[in-house]
Design a protein around this nucleic acid. Structure first.
Lengths: 342, 342
DNA sequence: TTAATAAACCAAAGCGCTTTGGGTGACAAT
DNA sequence: ATTGTCACCCAAAGCGCTTTGGTTTATTAA
């Protein structure tokens, strides 16, 4: 069923039917009701492509998920982010176009999305410190919102981010206040902006207490469970092991816990752990009492906010860039305790 | 840059340029090279919507991810599946349209995808035992492949599934052979087809050894980490606790392990666990030696296979339905051992 | 009564592509 | 010299929608 058929069945012109459906005022209420009823009966819905051609709007948002050569798969965090974003898109009638691209042809993917005109805007995921994608997107004039920030100037574009530095600063202070001096950092790849900001927070808290950082207990890699296990395993085998761990992802923290228990140590008594918690639905941090002490921030909510922002930019292109720096909460759970005295 | 501009710049008709780009033979090689060069220079790519309108093909595949009222988020397993599928789509120039729909308006989502003509086919995720979506998809004539099966007749449509029954049958046999008699089942929601098939496998293995099933040690719920923890916690507190656990998801198994360790028991010595392992990239089951004894099957590979199948169906609509029943491996790891004698 | 205004509708152009159904000239065959 | 056959190219229709620039009829004001 297309517009032509529908209008013939109604004995009206395509113009009138289109307007009745679109809610325009040049149609009498009686006619509109009749149109709506018959359209509904036949389950009519305008053809996306034809509509897009006619209006010049794709009514679709692109999400380009980067996969590295190491993990080769989509991070569960993206899934959660998109779940949030899709709530907003759905309300406004936008579709999601998903592309999964290796780091090396991400730029090509954005270019294609643009020249094929298949999206009205994109969310830029997982920004690196020096990110060439920003420049590209600006060049090709594709509206975008960054989920995160870059290292240099973040003025010229819109973004949603959590206050990573402050979060890890507070978490480090918290551990220091509990008496910990040797605090390991199990971070993401430091080419990623969020990871370098978290390291900055960690380092500045150490500096506040005149603790000189030890590079041997600062790790950095793709945030998998096994990475958490492997690095904690190695750190606990040091002659002078850390008494506390600051971890960049809940998934990694699970591996950290596994290594700690493997060593016969008790989490929260012998060793303390603070992790960042993106509130992944499948990994709820306990029911009433958090398992892990955590810097918490809902990545699903970030998805919602980024989506609202992007649609706003698309619909009002002339406005200034928007920013949203989300605060994190420090949730005290069962994984931290005073530093044991040896 | 559109076709018209491009053809003017080249001094050729739109027809010829379109054909040159499309690889049709009615164009001389010299002309084709020239067209290709200039097109590349200007980064020309045909407008998706216009192309779709003209050809009647959307060049897009829909993935409708169901979210339940309980978890409210996309399962990490879908992310992994889509990563696999996207490899195939990318090769053939298809895009992914992602919809996230609550159980209750899934049917509406499929209907819309169809009437808006925004996709050429869909993957049906997470089939339930009695699934109304199948009937709907057949009715509206949208090509589809099911990732999984339904309870009744699976003849009339294409699907990719793992041999869930056999996998859990073997795993149960394996535990029984180790001397376990009280084996708990930590299953998914049994309205889901995969979960009921796994239960069947478990029950039939018990029956093979004249062990009568105990409903108190058979759990069924959404597959979260906390569910694993909670149910194991409860089971281990029974006067007559199970000595082994058969678990439906790696994520759940993590919670199971947490509860076991909380109880001061040693995994693989005091309590045995076999889990299903979808080979999620962020949760590798150990490096050389598997942490968990597991029935293993790559869900990413399933994504690839389903995608190949769907594109084949779309491009050759007249053919018979295809099926692909993937075998699972039983990987023996560190989480199982002989039943301890009390 | 006539002109002006508003309400309700319509014909047709245009979005950017593919594809049908040609046309033109060069060359070989008759 | 004429016909047929290629190789190469083009004009225009059509995909299904929105939107511009109308027209027609009823209503109101002068």
């Amino acid at each position: 069923m297309n517009l032509k058929e529908l209008s013939e069945r109604l004995g009206l012109s395509q113009t009138t039917v289109s307007r009745a459906l679109g809610g325009y005022p040049e149609v009498s209420e009686t006619t509109r009701r009749r149109v709506l009823e018959i359209a509904d009966q036949h389950n009519y819905r305008p053809n996306t492509r034809a509509k897009g051609l006619a209006t010049g709007r794709a009514m679709a948002i692109g999400h380009v998920l980067p996969i590295g050569s190491k993990t080769e798969a989509v991070n569960p965090i993206f899934a959660e982010f998109i779940t949030g974003a899709s709530e907003i898109y759905g309300q406004k009638g936008y579709e999601i176009i998903l592309s999964i691209a290796r780091d090396d042809d991400e730029n090509k993917t954005y270019r294609e999305l643009r020249s094929k005109k298949s999206v009205d805007g994109v969310i830029l995921h997982a920004p690196r410190n020096e990110d060439t994608r920003l420049k590209l997107l600006r060049e090709i004039g594709l509206p975008f919102v960054v989920h995160g920030r870059v290292s240099g100037n973040n003025e010229g574009h819109s973004w949603v981010d959590v206050d990573n530095k402050r979060a890890f600063q507070r978490a480090t202070h918290f551990l220091i206040d509990l008496g910990h001096q040797r605090i390991a950092l199990i971070n993401g790849q430091e080419s990623m902006n969020f990871a370098s900001r978290r390291r900055d927070g960690y380092l500045s808290a150490l500096a506040d207490h005149q603790i000189s950082p030890d590079l041997h207990i600062m790790k950095s890699d793709v945030l998998t469970e096994f990475y958490g296990y492997r690095s904690t395993q190695a750190l606990l085998s040091l002659p002078n092991p850390p008494t506390a761990f600051l971890v960049s992802s809940y998934i990694v923290a699970i591996g950290v816990r596994r290594a700690i228990e493997k060593h016969g140590l008790v989490l929260g008594r012998d060793v303390s752990v603070v992790t960042h918690d993106d509130e992944l639905s499948y990994f709820a941090n306990g029911e009433d009492v958090p398992q892990f002490t955590a810097t918490r921030s809902s990545v699903r909510d970030a998805g919602r906010r980024a989506a609202v922002m992007l649609l706003d930019i698309i619909e009002n292109p002339q406005q200034l860039p928007q920013n949203d720096l989300m605060k994190t909460e420090l949730m005290v759970g069962l994984s931290t305790g005073p530093c044991p005295i040896y």
